[in-house]
Structures are given as C-alpha cells and as structure tokens.
C-alpha cells in the first residue's frame, strides 16, 4: 500500500536537493529575504518581550509575576484550560470516531460544521454567549433568579473558551483516523473485542500522538484566548481576569514592565508548545514510517 511519497526517492531528493540548480545569488537573496522577514516579525517581538520585561530589573520582573492579581489570573487561566481541554478532547475523539469509522449521509456537511468556530471572530464568539446567557435574556434572568451567574464570571469564560477551541482536537484526529482506515478495528471486532476494547487497545495507540498534539493546540489557544474572554469576563480583577486580560490591563495602565513580564510567561508557553509540536511531529512521522 502506497499512501505517501516513496521514502527512498524523498531521501534522495533531500540529499541531492534541487537547490544546487538555483544560482547561488538567487539562493542567497531568497534566504536573506526570509531571514529579514522572520527578523522583523518573529525575532524582534520575542526579543522585545524580554527586553521590556527586564527593563526595570529582575526584581520588578519577579515581583510582577508573583503579585496576587497575576497569580489569581494564572489560576483562572489554568482552571479554564483544565476544564476545556478534556471536554473538547472527548468530543474530538467521539466526532473523529463517528466521521472516520462509518459511512453516512451528510458527512461533509458535519465536518464543515465542526470548523465553524474558526470562521467566527473571537469578539462574536464572546457576544453570542452574552446574548444567550446574559441577564437580559429569558434563560439568563431565570438563571439569575436562582443565583446562577454565568456571564461576567468563570463559567462564562469557560463556555466562550470551549467555543473558540472547539475544533482543534477533532480537526487533528479526523484526517489521521481516516488515513488509518477501519481494517484494524474490524479485525478486532471479528476476533470478539467489545466496543471499549476496540477503542482502547486498537485505536488509541494509533492515534495517541495526534490526540496529544490536538490537546496541546487546544490548551495553547485556551490559555491565550483574548477577544472572546474579554467580552464575557467583565474584567474583574482577581476574579474574572485571565492572564491575557491581565497583560492588557497592565499595558493600558502604562505599567509596561509588568505587562511584558507577565506576557513573557505566555511567550514561554507558546515556545514550549512549538517545541512539543516539533517533537510530536517527528514521533508521528516515525510512527507512520514504521507502519509502512
């Protein structure tokens, strides 16, 4: 079964490369332009975060990260991620199982519905939950009478983040599981495996890297989400402030050093995401190579 490029030919192409066909001048100019672009759009902003964060010295940097409001914001952000990631992961697995292991009408339509949140502006994502659950609506006022407040409190932040990070795991798993086909699971069923056994023994080991990778993307986005959370949070310090909102507040108070110090935490998390991603892509690549 040939599902990818011939590994031998790929290796050959990489060794000889087509690069020596491009004249040296072209190569140098194009690489230089790329580096220039990355310099301006990637390296400069990254350097700036740390330069600004440490502008007033390491003591201010550490103090900005350790002050109670920053800690509270970090706690809220991590709590949100801890609720959102598992929920969306379970959904992602269920959706990928239904879509990739069965044939049914309306599959293409269902898959495009899964991508819907990507097409919605983060601000609109926040707005729809204010409209649905805010105190102005029937549902919201009923909840309010029973002492349940969803908007401008933690549940609102969690729901808006659920919406924004909704497709990540499913999107990662559907192509992966479709490429793996149904034969292994069907063989397991034929040999007498029960539903849960088929999934945990046959499917899960095959998709573990993709699943983990989708969850990491989901986590990165749920930690960093700004627009949607900004709409539903109400910006109550120490209560409904996530880390990105905290960065915004500090910045708008002209407290740049503290703002960038807190932002540097997010930069570390982003860089960690990228590193893990590279490692996993290699793992996924190796896994696929050993399969064929």
């Amino acid at each position: 079964m040939q599902t990818g490029p011939n590994p031998d030919k790929t290796a050959l192409r990489h060794r000889t490369g087509t690069s020596h066909q491009d004249p040296l001048a072209v190569r140098v100019i194009l690489i230089f332009l790329t580096l220039l672009f990355f310099g301006g759009f990637v390296f400069l902003p990254l350097a700036l975060v740390f330069a600004e964060g440490f502008r007033k010295g390491a003591a201010v940097y550490i103090e900005s990260i350790r002050e109670p409001y920053a800690i509270a914001a970090l706690e809220l952000t991590l709590t949100t991620a801890a609720i959102v990631v598992p929920l969306n992961a379970v959904f992602g697995v269920a959706a990928a199982w239904a879509v990739s292991k069965f044939t049914f009408r309306g599959k293409t339509f269902l898959v495009s519905l899964l991508d819907l949140p990507f097409a919605v502006s983060p601000v609109i994502a926040g707005l729809i939950f204010v409209l649905l659950l805010g105190s102005r609506t029937t549902l919201g006022s009923w909840l309010g009478e029973h002492g349940i407040k969803l908007i401008f409190s933690t549940p609102g932040i969690v729901i808006a983040t659920l919406f924004v990070t909704f497709p990540f795991v499913a999107r990662e798993l559907i192509p992966l599981m479709e490429s793996q086909g149904r034969e292994e699971e069907e063989a397991a069923v034929t040999l007498g495996a029960k539903g849960w056994q088929v999934f945990s023994i046959v499917t899960l080991p095959n998709i573990r890297w993709g699943l983990l990778y989708g969850m990491i993307l989901c986590m990165a986005r749920s930690i960093g989400e700004f627009g949607a959370v900004s709409v539903v949070s109400g910006h109550i310090r120490g209560m409904t402030n996530t880390i990105p909102l905290h960065v915004e507040i500090l910045y708008s108070e002209y407290n740049y050093a503290a703002s960038f110090a807190v932002a540097s935490i997010l930069v570390f998390l982003a860089l960690a995401t990228i590193v893990v991603r590279s490692i996993m892509e290699n793992a996924l690549h190796n896994q696929q190579q050993t399969q064929f």
Partner: peptide, 10 residues
C-alpha cells in the same frame, strides 16, 4: 501559539 494580546502589545 502566541496569544494575540501579546503580539498586539509587542
């Protein structure tokens, strides 16, 4: 991977 707000202030 980078939160948009961080990119914004940068």
């Amino acid at each position: 991977a980078l939160p948009t707000a961080v990119a914004g202030i940068c």
